[in-house]
Simulated assay, not measured.
Amino acid sequence: MTFPCPQIKSRIIPVPEQNERSSPNRMNGDQKQIRKGALMEQKKMTFDIPYIRLGFYAEMLADTRLPASKVSALRGGMGEMLLRQNCVNDRKCDGCMFHQACPVYRTLYTPMDPKPRYVTGQESVGYLLECSDRSEFMRKGDRLVFHLVLFGESIVYFNLYLQAFALLGMSGLGSARTQFRIAEVRNTEGGKIVSGNHVDMGKYRYSLVSDYIKRRKAELGFCDGKYRLTFTAPLAMKYQKEYMNRFYAEALVKGAARRVQMLNYYIGNDADLPEFSRYPVIRSQTVRKESVKRYSHTQGGPVTLRGISGQVFFQDMPEECLNYLIAGELTHMGKCSSFGFGKYYLEQDRFYLQEK
């Protein structure tokens, strides 16, 4: 049996004519271009990211032994002291009603909303710790120098970081419970912000990553793309879904660009990753595997961090890639950067230039 299809009378509702010039929802050609330009500008990466690199001078209060790699102990100790000083919920972060206002959360991690798609957990891009001193024995009065690099809004939390390291000095660093006092804290230019018990916030001045890039380019000079990149701390980074056991030019450039992108998101600029027309050419490289052991309060036991270090020799360096690799000297690249991983520096490959 078939049923007749009912006839539905359509009703055409006339739309009143609008004057194109007077329509509030219609944009003319100039307005469209302005709108398009604004959207493109919104997604463009910027190097105008505020930062400050602080030098901490910790004076040993007794003869002591320290691990060769000190950043993990400094980072773990700093986190523990921040929790002791500021946590009001018995360290129960899940469901804590004070989560958004928590100073520990805002100093140890980097609130980003929105955030890049590849950021799936809590990232720590607002700060970095660096320490190149690998001596394992220090006498009373010796000074351990380490650096704290702050980016974006993390810059305003200097007092919290300072208090954390001062308390760490009283509590003791590492398994030997090494005690120290913060004798000095210096700014990026070497000016004394802290000297003994005196704090001069007039010397607490931040810079921009873009200014750092300009200065480093002037220092490096023209070398026809012949650069040497040296990792002074292990790099833990994936390339084609596998952790690298050698260096790849594309991975290095994109790794530096991702760090800059995360900092862009941190300062409120949800920028796209740049599309590079070409990448540097690697002439040769040296690679060695490294590992650093640390105790994790979060995981309740020892953790081993692994990566590769060494040198990369370039024979060609596009300008667009050079900017990001120079920025990476400040921002580091790869995973575990808050524990000092991914630190490197660029210089002219003088031996190659002399051979030519």
Rank of each mutant, 00 (worst) to 15 (best):
M333H: 03
E80I: 03
K192N: 06
L167I: 12
S296K: 04
K44V: 03
L229S: 00
E41I: 01
S23N: 15
T232G: 02
Y345V: 13
E80R: 14
K343T: 14
Y295C: 03
T286G: 07
D63P: 03
F151P: 03
T110I: 04
S207P: 01
V15G: 03
D48T: 09
R139N: 08
P234H: 12
R91L: 12
F180T: 07
K43V: 04
L162S: 05
Q285M: 14
S72K: 00
P302I: 02
V253E: 07
A73W: 05
G77H: 04
M40T: 06
M27Y: 14
K43L: 08
K343M: 09
G334E: 10
Y239L: 02
V185P: 03
I13C: 11
R65M: 11
Q354N: 10
C96H: 08
P318F: 11
G268W: 09
G141Q: 02
K32W: 14
M112T: 09
C93D: 10
S284A: 09
T2V: 14
K36S: 06
Y279G: 03
P234K: 07
T2R: 07
G310Q: 13
M317D: 09
A251P: 04
Y161V: 12
M317Y: 02
N323S: 14
S132Y: 06
F56L: 00
D90Q: 09
A62R: 14
K254S: 10
R134C: 00
T331P: 01
R259H: 15
Y345A: 14
Y57K: 12
P318Q: 10
S284Y: 04
L83M: 13
Q240P: 00
Y57M: 12
Y324Q: 06
F351R: 13
V260C: 01
Q299C: 00
E80L: 15
I326E: 10
G221Y: 00
